[in-house]
């Protein structure tokens, strides 16, 4: 039996489908969080390579019971339609700012810091960098964690008298709820003493709220193409023989 033209592809065993919305949200695997946030970031205008970094950051946080997906949604909503020129970090001695006094994107900043690896690492207890203003700064932690791993030293993010540490084995500790609630901060990044061991990678799924899910899905949908008759014609068939 030859299939009708309105639905040419028999099935797709590799895709991640849209998560079902329960009354108030859904439990998502890390894989689902990473893929959804990657697509949403791309939909919001990030390059594919940066969008991969956004997906990485969201899943890293979710694995530690921090709402990375919500932070990604806040960030891409905040930066939607802003050009790379505006959010592009400018690196000078001991300091990173955005151009023309704009706010730094934590994904762009984190990526730049990771790309430069341990070139930034100064002497212990000395300020490594002053950064800011940076929006949704909790998104910076996954990148600081990767740098910590690279240089085998713990790193602290300090702002307004508060601190969060990340360690070389993926640990994170400190005033995370405060950091999560900050929409924008000026901060210092330091090489600090080791954080207390924290339970990293223990979580197997993370609950994402309906608002966050629908928001991310809305951006992710921007990466898709409406079907055309051309793409459907002769692409496949359904047979129930």
């Amino acid at each position: 039996m030859i299939g009708s033209v309105d639905d040419p592809e028999p099935n797709d065993p590799t895709r991640s489908g849209p998560p079902l919305l329960q009354a108030d949200g859904a439990w998502l695997s890390h894989n689902e969080i990473e893929q959804l946030c990657l697509k949403a970031a791309r939909g919001a205008g990030m390059s594919w390579g940066l969008a991969e970094e956004a997906g990485f950051a969201a899943a890293w946080l979710a694995r530690r019971d921090v709402d990375g997906p919500a932070a990604i949604l806040s960030q891409i909503t905040h930066a939607d339609a802003r050009s790379w020129h505006e959010i592009c970090p400018e690196v000078t001695a001991g300091q990173v700012t955005a151009r023309d006094g704009q706010e730094l994107c934590p994904i762009a900043l984190g990526t730049v810091l990771c790309d430069r690896g341990n070139n930034f690492i100064g002497s212990k207890q000395e300020p490594l960098l002053s950064v800011g203003p940076i929006t949704y700064p909790v998104l910076l932690l996954p990148f600081l964690s990767d740098i910590s791993k690279l240089c085998a030293l713990s790193i602290s993010l300090e702002w307004s008298g508060r601190r969060v540490f990340v360690g070389p084995n993926g640990e994170v500790t400190g005033d995370i709820p405060a950091l999560e609630s900050e929409p924008s901060i000026h901060a210092q990044i330091k090489v600090g003493s080791g954080p207390k061991p924290a339970n990293a990678n223990a979580l197997r799924a993370f609950f994402v709220s309906e608002d966050t899910l629908s928001g991310l899905n809305r951006y992710a949908l921007r990466t898709t193409v409406p079907a055309s008759e051309m793409s459907r014609a002769g692409a496949g068939a359904d047979d129930a023989d």
């Binding site: 592809e9 797709d12 895709r15 193409v225 409406p226």
Partner: peptide, 23 residues
């Protein structure tokens, strides 16, 4: 190569004959 909006799955199109190559 693109992802279809109606089924969120990969497809392949003709660049010079179909819309969507910007995605």
């Amino acid at each position: 190569w693109y992802v279809s909006e109606e089924k969120l799955e990969p497809r392949i199109g003709f660049r010079f004959e179909e819309d969507g190559a910007d995605l």
